[in-house]
Design a protein around this nucleic acid. Structure first.
Length: 253
DNA sequence: CCCTGATTCGC
DNA sequence: GCGAATCAGG
C-alpha cells in the first residue's frame, strides 16, 4: 500500500482525533502500526498525549540503542545531534475528556426585558446553573441545546452543567459526509431490510458504501450479490459450472 | 505479557 | 520516503 493523498488525509484526521496508531492502521488497512506512526511523524503530526507517558518526565524517549543483540549492522557514524528540533508545546492538557475547563462563573446575564436574547457568543458557552436567580421571572425548565460546533449540538438539562467536551473546535471542518463521492451512495445509515447491503469498497475508505439495490426477496442482498454470497451445494463429483449463478437461493435438496 | 508512541536506520 | 525492529514505559 502506498500513501495516497486520500490515505494521508485519513491518517491526519484520525491521528488528530486521538485514535491510536493501531486503530488507524487497522482502519486504513495494508499498513502496520509502525507505518502509521512513522508516517505521522514524517508528516509532522507528532506528539500526541500517549497513554504511556503520563506526566512526561523524560524528554528523551529512545536514547541510543547500541547493543550486542545487533547482528552486524550499523556503521553508525553518529550524528552530531545539534539540538532537539522541537520543543514547541510545553503544556499538555490534551486529555480528550475530563478537564472541566471551569469557565468563569458567568453571572447569570440579565434577563432581557423582551425577546430572548440570542446567545450570539460563539466562542463561549455560558451555562447557568438554574439554581440561583430567585427573582428571575423566567425559569428555564427546558433542556438547553448547546452548540458544540457546526452541526453539533448537545441537549443540556438544567441540572446538567457538564460542559460539552469539545469546546467548538475552531479548526477547519470537513463535511459530514466523508467525501462528496458517496453523497448519493448508500451509507450504513441508509440500510433497510429491502435494500442490498453488499459492501462496496472497504470500511474506512472514503468511498465505502453499500450496494443499495433492491434485495432479492428473502435475502439481504440483491439478486446479483446473492449470486456472490451464496454458492450452490453441488452433488459430489459434479464439476462446478463456472459462474452462472442467477439468484441466491441454493435450493439444493 | 498486553498495549502505547518514539526512534533508529537499512532499504 | 517507507516501515520493521527496537526501545521505553503504563
Amino acid at each position: 500500500m502506498s500513501w495516497t493523498d486520500e490515505r494521508i488525509d485519513q491518517l491526519k484526521t484520525m491521528w488528530e482525533k486521538g485514535l491510536t496508531a493501531s486503530q488507524i492502521a487497522e482502519e486504513l488497512g495494508g499498513v502496520s502500526r509502525n507505518a502509521v506512526i512513522g508516517k505521522a511523524h514524517r508528516l509532522g503530526l507528532k506528539s500526541r498525549p500517549s497513554p504511556v507517558k503520563a506526566g512526561e518526565a523524560k524528554p528523551k524517549a529512545a536514547p541510543k540503542k547500541e547493543a550486542a543483540p545487533k547482528p552486524a549492522k550499523k556503521a553508525a557514524a553518529e550524528v552530531a545531534a545539534d539540538e532537539p528540533p522541537f520543543k514547541v508545546d510545553a503544556p499538555v492538557a490534551a486529555k480528550p475528556v475530563r478537564a472541566a475547563p471551569a469557565p468563569a462563573p458567568t453571572p447569570a446575564p440579565e434577563p432581557r426585558p423582551v425577546e430572548a436574547a440570542p446567545p450570539a457568543d460563539e466562542d463561549e458557552d455560558d451555562f447557568d446553573d438554574g439554581a440561583e436567580l430567585a427573582a428571575a421571572p423566567e425559569p428555564k425548565p427546558q433542556p438547553r441545546i448547546v452548540s458544540v460546533g457546526p452541526g453539533g449540538f448537545l441537549r443540556q438539562g438544567p441540572g446538567d452543567q457538564q460542559a460539552p467536551i469539545p469546546p467548538a473546535p475552531p479548526r477547519r471542518l470537513v463535511p459530514a459526509r466523508p467525501s462528496p463521492e458517496i453523497a448519493d451512495k448508500t451509507s450504513l445509515l441508509d440500510l433497510t431490510d429491502r435494500i442490498c447491503r453488499w459492501p462496496m469498497g472497504h470500511p474506512g475508505e472514503p468511498d465505502f458504501h453499500f450496494c443499495g439495490e433492491a434485495v432479492n426477496p428473502g435475502f439481504p442482498y440483491c439478486v446479483e450479490h446473492c449470486g456472490r454470497a451464496y454458492q450452490a451445494q453441488l452433488p459430489r463429483g459434479t464439476r462446478r459450472p463456472p459462474p452462472p449463478m442467477p439468484f441466491g437461493g441454493p435450493r439444493v435438496r
